[in-house]
Simulated assay, not measured.
Amino acid sequence: MSDVPAGGPANGPAVSREEFDALFASVRTWGRWAAADRGAWNRVTAEHARRATATVRDGTVVPMARPWDTRPGPDNAKPALHYMSDLGDVQAPEPSVHKDFLAADYHGKAVTHLDALSHVAYRGRLYDGRAARDHVDAAGARFGAVSALGPLVARGVLVDLPAVLGVEWLEPGRAVHARDLVAAEEALGVTVGDGDAVLLRSGALRRRRELGPWNPDAASAGWHVHALPLLAERAVALLGGDGDSDVRPSPVEGLHSPVHALAVTAMGVPLLDNLDLEPLSAACAEAGRYAFLLVVAPLNVPGGTGSPVNPVAIL
């Protein structure tokens, strides 16, 4: 089920920078939409949202955010903050109140978050060919900010590859190819289509809970860049997963996160990172279906390059 030659590396085949640049040009959608800072979310119309609601049958609601993680670890170099700012000391008039403070450097491997189009630049360019230096500075992003996206209501599709392969998880470093997606569609009885949000389960959270944390910057299961043309052809609106979508080590010479560059910068497809897909995997298996209503509501942060989120699937 893989495009990797027998005996080749799990994250392969290797891709040269020249080949990557040709691939980038082939999937690029610059100039396609007037509301360019919404990118591929322009594909999701009111009709798409209405059709997505038709996937709801029994009303099972599955949240997909990981717990707010304040503990340092190999996959959490910059832990989130949570502390009490008011302990409710009784003062007139009643009632007393309790308050807390939250903060996170969320573009990492521990916080469930959405990457907006301003998050990734390639060769100095954001999505739609905008010069990054002209549109992002210390005050934030003036193009491609998360505030331009707003909430997404769309059909979600879970590509549950461990379930297809009969394994508990994909080992870190295992690339997912176009052939894997096609085989998963056949096995799971679902087809990725226009305006869909595609969520890739590698089983990373199950592996972490059973074997302990590791550094996903060094090794993670995820899409190989050769899978992106098929996802572009299917006209997806969003990619997400229990990692950050990229296989690591990267198969592309000189690029740490090539799928980020292809999806966000070339295709205008926002990314959902660090989802907990274990409950959704169980719910989809029990229901016998892998398409559902997906709701993603990022914080309205003007100039923000993304947002912590708690995406919800409704079956």
Rank of each mutant, 00 (worst) to 15 (best):
P5D: 09
A6L: 06
A6E: 09
P9M: 01
P13I: 08
P13W: 01
P13L: 05
V15R: 06
V15K: 03
S16Q: 11
R17K: 12
E18R: 15
E18G: 04
E19T: 13
E19V: 15
D21N: 15
L23D: 09
F24H: 08
V27Y: 06
W30L: 08
G31R: 05
A34H: 05
A40N: 10
A52G: 15
A52F: 02
V56P: 01
R57A: 07
T60S: 07
V62E: 06
P67S: 03
D69V: 09
D69A: 03
T70A: 13
T70H: 01
R71N: 08
R71T: 15
P72K: 05
G73W: 06
P74W: 09
P74R: 12
A77V: 10
K78V: 12
P79T: 07
L81A: 06
D86E: 13
V90G: 09
E94W: 09
P95D: 12
V97P: 02
V97Q: 13
D100V: 10
F101T: 10
Y106R: 03
G108S: 10
V111N: 04
A116R: 07
H119D: 14
A121M: 15
A121Q: 15
G124E: 10
G124N: 14
R125T: 15
G129S: 14
G129W: 11
R130E: 13
A131L: 15
R133H: 13
V136A: 02
A138L: 14
R142N: 04
F143R: 13
V146F: 00
V146I: 11
V146Y: 00
S147F: 02
S147R: 05
A154V: 12
G156M: 04
V164K: 11
L165A: 14
G166F: 01
G166E: 06
V167T: 15
G173W: 05
A175V: 11
A175Q: 07
H177Q: 04
D180K: 00
D180S: 06
A183K: 05
L188H: 02
G189T: 08
T191H: 14
V192Y: 00
D194A: 08
L200C: 11
S202I: 10
S202C: 12
A204F: 05
R206K: 15
R207E: 14
G212K: 11
W214Y: 10
P216A: 02
A218H: 02
A227P: 13
A227M: 06
P229H: 06
L230T: 11
A232M: 11
A235I: 05
V236M: 01
L238F: 06
L239R: 05
G241N: 10
G241W: 01
G243N: 14
G243C: 04
G243W: 00
D244L: 01
D246Q: 07
P249K: 09
E253I: 07
E253Y: 07
G254M: 11
V259M: 05
H260S: 08
L262K: 02
A263K: 02
V264Y: 08
T265G: 03
A266D: 03
G268K: 00
L271C: 09
D276S: 04
E278W: 03
L280R: 03
A282E: 15
E286A: 06
E286W: 06
A287N: 09
R289W: 04
L293N: 00
P298A: 09
L299T: 09
V301S: 01
G303D: 07
G303K: 04
G303N: 07
G303M: 10
T305W: 02
G306D: 06
V309F: 02
I314K: 00
I314A: 00
